[in-house]
Computed example of a mutant assay.
Amino acid sequence: MANDLPNTEDDDDIQLFHEAVKGARPVEAKRILHAPKKPKPIPRQLIRDEQQALVDSLSDHYIPAHELESGEELLYLRDGQSPLVLSKLRRGHWVVQAHIDLHGLVSDEARLYVSEFIADCKKRGLRCIRIVHGKGLGSRNKEPVLKHKLRNWLMQKDEVIAYAQARTNDGGSGAVIVLLKA
């Protein structure tokens, strides 16, 4: 049988190998430490620019082409929307999914807060939100400063389909319910 014969070729290879490494010493296994990965840079200027764009996107001096408001009640319906949307919003057809309170904020803080809140709600897929603006009882003239500014800000936001004064149990004349695009 061919398998019973000694394999001199393999023995020669092994002997050559042993001769080649006879003076070698085993290497100590050392743990190689890699430098930690650098964190991704924080785009601070981009963040500042986006915040400024949010602030700049809402003007206090916006004059709407038409308004649906009657007296002091806040009402708005974007062009092309069915009046049924506003009717349903006023009756509480949609559940309020998130809300913010603007009490204690000055106009610039409130404008930024509203912009960021609407952008966040849009990202999260929320449709119906409440914004509490207050009744102005704490202001100098006892008039709702933020209420009137909020009206203009919301009309400028493309995401806003409609808004209406909140029902009594949701804040009444001190809050507004806003319907956002899907």
Rank of each mutant, 00 (worst) to 15 (best):
A65M: 10
Q15V: 14
D4P: 03
N169P: 01
E72S: 07
K38Q: 04
L54F: 13
L180N: 09
P83T: 15
I100M: 09
N152P: 04
R25A: 14
W94S: 11
S173M: 05
D11A: 15
A162N: 10
R140A: 14
N152S: 15
P144E: 03
R111G: 00
G138Y: 13
A175D: 00
L102S: 04
L16W: 10
L68E: 05
S173A: 06
R140F: 10
V176Y: 02
K181G: 13
G125S: 03
I100Y: 07
Y113D: 09
R140S: 12
L16T: 12
L74A: 10
A53Q: 11
E50P: 01
Y163L: 08
H93C: 00
D101E: 01
V95M: 05
R78V: 00
A98T: 07
L89D: 07
Q45V: 15
W94I: 04
F17N: 10
P26L: 15
G80F: 07
I42V: 15
L180K: 07
H34S: 12
D49V: 00
R90E: 10
A119L: 12
S59I: 11
A65L: 13
V95S: 08
R151L: 10
D10L: 15
V95T: 11
H99F: 08
K181Y: 07
V27A: 14
L75W: 07
L180H: 06
R90Y: 02
S87T: 14
V114D: 02
D56T: 14
Q52R: 06
P64I: 02
L126W: 06
A2V: 10
V132N: 08
R127L: 07
G171A: 06
A182F: 09
A162W: 08
C128E: 03
H93S: 00
V132D: 07
A175F: 00
V96C: 10
L105S: 11
K37I: 15
D108T: 15
R130S: 04
K135Q: 14
A119W: 05
R151C: 14
I42P: 00
L150V: 06
D120E: 15
R124Y: 03
L179Y: 13
L54R: 14
R48W: 12
R91T: 08
I131S: 03
Q81Y: 13
R48P: 04
L146P: 07
G71W: 05
E159R: 09
K135E: 12
K88I: 08
S139A: 06
Y62H: 13
L180Q: 06
E67N: 12
L54P: 04
V145C: 04
D11V: 15
H18W: 09
Y163H: 10
Q15F: 14
D120I: 09
G104R: 03
G125I: 05
V114C: 04
P43V: 12
D13P: 01
